[in-house]
Simulated scan of single mutants.
Amino acid sequence: MSANLDDIRDQQRETWDKFSAGWKKWDSLVLGWLAPFGDTMIRSANLSNSFSVLDVAAGTGEPGLTAAAAIPDGHVTVTDLSENMLAAAAENAAKRGLKNFETRLCDAGALPFADASFDAVLCRFGFMFFPDIATAAKEMARVAKPGARICAAVWSTPAKNPWAATIMDTIARHVEMPSPPAGSPGLFRCAPEGMMVETFREAGLLDVAEEEVSTMMVHDAPERYWDFMAEIAAPVVAGLSRADTATREKIRREVLELALQFVSDGKVHLRSTATVIIGTR
Score class of each variant (00 low, 15 high):
8 I>F: 02
10 D>I: 14
11 Q>Y: 06
15 T>K: 08
16 W>Y: 09
19 F>N: 15
21 A>D: 15
22 G>F: 01
26 W>Y: 15
33 W>N: 11
36 P>M: 02
37 F>Q: 14
38 G>V: 00
39 D>F: 04
40 T>D: 04
42 I>R: 00
42 I>C: 01
43 R>Q: 08
47 L>R: 00
51 F>T: 02
51 F>N: 10
52 S>T: 13
52 S>K: 14
54 L>Q: 11
54 L>W: 02
57 A>G: 15
58 A>M: 00
60 T>L: 10
63 P>E: 01
64 G>Q: 02
66 T>I: 10
67 A>P: 12
67 A>T: 14
67 A>D: 07
68 A>H: 03
70 A>S: 14
70 A>W: 00
80 D>P: 01
88 A>D: 03
93 A>Y: 02
96 R>K: 13
98 L>K: 03
101 F>E: 09
103 T>E: 02
104 R>V: 15
104 R>Y: 15
105 L>F: 09
107 D>N: 10
108 A>E: 11
108 A>V: 11
112 P>S: 13
113 F>C: 01
119 D>L: 07
120 A>L: 04
121 V>W: 00
122 L>D: 00
123 C>A: 09
124 R>L: 07
127 F>Y: 04
128 M>C: 07
128 M>N: 00
135 T>K: 13
136 A>L: 03
137 A>V: 04
143 V>R: 00
143 V>M: 06
143 V>E: 05
145 K>G: 07
150 I>K: 01
157 T>S: 12
162 P>G: 15
163 W>I: 14
164 A>F: 11
168 M>A: 11
170 T>L: 06
172 A>C: 09
172 A>L: 14
173 R>T: 15
174 H>T: 04
176 E>D: 05
178 P>S: 09
179 S>P: 14
180 P>T: 11
181 P>I: 07
181 P>G: 09
181 P>C: 01
182 A>F: 05
185 P>K: 09
190 C>S: 03
190 C>H: 03
191 A>E: 01
195 M>G: 11
195 M>I: 10
197 V>N: 07
200 F>M: 02
202 E>K: 15
202 E>G: 05
203 A>H: 10
209 A>N: 06
211 E>N: 07
212 E>Y: 09
215 T>F: 01
215 T>S: 03
218 V>P: 10
219 H>A: 12
219 H>D: 08
225 Y>S: 10
225 Y>A: 07
226 W>E: 10
227 D>K: 11
231 E>N: 06
231 E>T: 10
231 E>Y: 11
232 I>S: 05
232 I>L: 08
233 A>G: 05
235 P>Q: 01
238 A>K: 05
239 G>M: 06
245 T>P: 12
246 A>S: 09
247 T>Y: 04
248 R>M: 07
252 R>P: 11
256 L>T: 06
257 E>S: 08
262 F>Q: 13
262 F>P: 05
265 D>F: 03
266 G>R: 02
272 S>D: 06
272 S>I: 07
273 T>D: 10
274 A>P: 08
275 T>I: 14
275 T>D: 14
275 T>R: 07
275 T>Y: 12
